[in-house]
């Protein structure tokens, strides 16, 4: 089944790749577009038709109270919801011009292009080197051992971790501190050279200093990657993101420039949330 799929995909992609990228009203390239996204867990509907664009080389923050569907939406973007048996997704999500839920789209390729960093740092129980080398290895990105070493070192540098771990690359990744582990996971994600990085509350398990470092890193990564971040903390959203989307009860209430959302929300619910009336 998988074999037939890839051959079809090729032709499908060939036609789409040449199409011009979608552009927003302001002239910014739209990396990903969600249109009327609905998600069901069994009989329960978790998302009620969300339309949301993700702009290229910007950080988009998804905020909202617990259970509002922001993580669910995030996991739709690289089809991590596929791992949950009872989960069903409707609507369109486009990466450039490809519908990621098109049956002809290959999920492995999608996830290589749309990487993910999780809430709790989850380094593999392997050495630091092997953790970062994992992605390049499975995708066959390195031609030689030297290539691989270069990619690993470079990824760790880009993740701002290289200086801290360069002398102990063969020690287990699980032995690092929480903040270092999360940056290791980021290094692991960028080693695959994704186009988009999804971050699901990446700092919620970290202390303030580690959080600051990761936030700094996110800001730096923005130049080369498109980032979508789910966060509980409005301060974090304000600090790292250019655009913010506010979710409530499975719907997208409001989306706009982060500054506008925080200073001048259009919707009463957003107002209530950012002023701390609920959450």
């Amino acid at each position: 089944m998988a074999l037939e799929m890839t051959t079809d995909t090729e032709s499908a992609m060939d036609t789409t790749i040449s199409a011009p990228p979608a552009v927003s009203a302001e002239g910014e390239t739209l990396k990903m577009r969600g249109r009327d996204v609905k998600v069901f867990y069994g009989d329960k509907q978790a998302l009620h038709g969300v339309d949301l664009d993700v702009r290229k080389n910007q950080v988009t923050a998804l905020i909202g109270p617990s259970g509002c569907g922001k993580s669910t939406f995030l996991r739709c973007l690289n089809r991590m919801n596929d791992t949950i048996d009872i989960c069903r997704v409707e609507g369109d999500i486009l990466l450039d011009n490809d519908d990621v839920y098109d049956p002809r789209i290959d999920v492995v390729e999608l996830r290589a292009r749309v990487g993910m960093v999780f809430q709790k740092p989850n380094p593999f129980p392997k050495s630091i080197f092997e953790n970062v080398a994992y992605g390049p290895r499975i995708h066959g990105l390195a031609q030689s051992k030297a290539d691989l070493e270069e990619i690993v070192a470079s990824s760790l540098q880009r993740a701002g971790l290289f200086e801290e771990v360069k002398d102990r690359l063969d020690e287990p990744g699980t032995g690092l501190s929480g903040g270092q582990q999360q940056r290791l996971c980021i290094a692991r994600a960028i080693a695959v050279s994704p186009e988009v990085i999804l971050m699901d509350e990446p700092c919620s398990a970290l202390d303030p200093i580690a959080t600051a470092k990761v936030e700094e890193l996110i800001d730096e990564l923005r130049q080369n990657y498109t980032i979508v971040i789910v966060t509980h903390s409005m301060q974090q959203a304000a600090r790292v993101s250019q655009r913010t989307a506010f979710f409530h009860l499975g719907t997208l209430v409001e989306e706009g420039l982060t500054n506008d959302i925080f200073t001048n929300p259009k919707d009463q619910r957003t107002q209530d949330y950012i002023t701390g009336r609920f959450g």
Partner: peptide, 17 residues
């Protein structure tokens, strides 16, 4: 290329397609 946040050296962009 050692700047934090830069692209990873050795892998061209769009490598997955």
């Amino acid at each position: 290329g050692s700047a934090i946040g830069g692209r990873v050296k050795g892998i061209p962009s769009g490598v997955h397609t």
